[in-house]
């Protein structure tokens, strides 16, 4: 993680560099966006949720404790909660709409593009895409990813290997 600016606590015994919010936002924006893009599978939604995530992070920035984990993991936790809230509200909206208009066309914004990898990613579940994003793209370690996802390290590792295997199979099918 690249830290542009940092402030130091006034307690010499506990000297610890605490990055500024703007520095963290600058360095982690792409990572959070990437994670949300994989999680939602929708570029527009990912952008909205990224903005929302950073607004939330801005409000609760004083709660961030660098001794407990990296800013990236902390932001991913907020991003995940934001995304789950979004899924929940989307589900409610869809249920409401289904009650009145059964054949409303879904306007899906293609998230990843037209290639075989992009198509395969689209076929993965959100949980699978999420773990791939955190471990492979954001390069979080196993325990941190598990903590963000709220699962055990073993479950996280299993989910990742299953997701990658499935992704590879889907790509192979697409190529064949």
């Amino acid at each position: 993680m690249r830290v542009v600016n940092a402030v130091t606590t006034s307690w010499p015994a506990l000297r610890l560099d605490r990055p500024t919010f703007s520095a963290v936002a600058e360095s982690e924006l792409d990572a959070v966006h990437r994670y949300l893009l994989f999680l939602t599978g929708n570029r527009t939604v990912a952008e909205d949720l990224t903005g929302e995530t950073f607004e939330k992070a801005f409000r609760v920035w004083r709660r961030f404790d660098p001794r407990r984990g990296t800013a990236r993991a902390w932001l991913c936790g907020i991003a995940r909660t934001t995304a789950l809230d979004h899924f929940r509200s989307e589900e409610r909206r869809r249920r409401r709409e289904e009650r009145y208009a059964h054949d409303l066309p879904e306007t899906e914004d293609l998230a990843f593009g037209p290639g075989p990898l992009e198509a395969a990613l689209g076929l993965l579940s959100a949980a699978e895409r999420e773990v791939v994003a955190l471990r492979v793209l954001l390069e979080l370690d196993g325990p941190t990813t598990a903590r963000v996802l709220g699962i055990s390290t073993t479950a996280c590792s299993t989910r990742l290997s299953r997701a990658l295997k499935r992704l590879e199979e889907l790509m192979k099918d697409a190529r064949d």
């Binding site: 959070v32 966006h33 990437r34 593009g113 990658l164 992704l167």
Partner: peptide, 26 residues
């Protein structure tokens, strides 16, 4: 596979970056 995944165009758009920058410092 990892290389391909990392090569995907997933960077945040400039508009979003600007929005986050405007938040400033708490």
């Amino acid at each position: 596979l990892v290389r391909d995944l990392r090569a995907l165009p997933t960077a945040a758009p400039e508009q979003l970056r600007e929005h986050v920058r405007l938040l400033g410092e708490p």
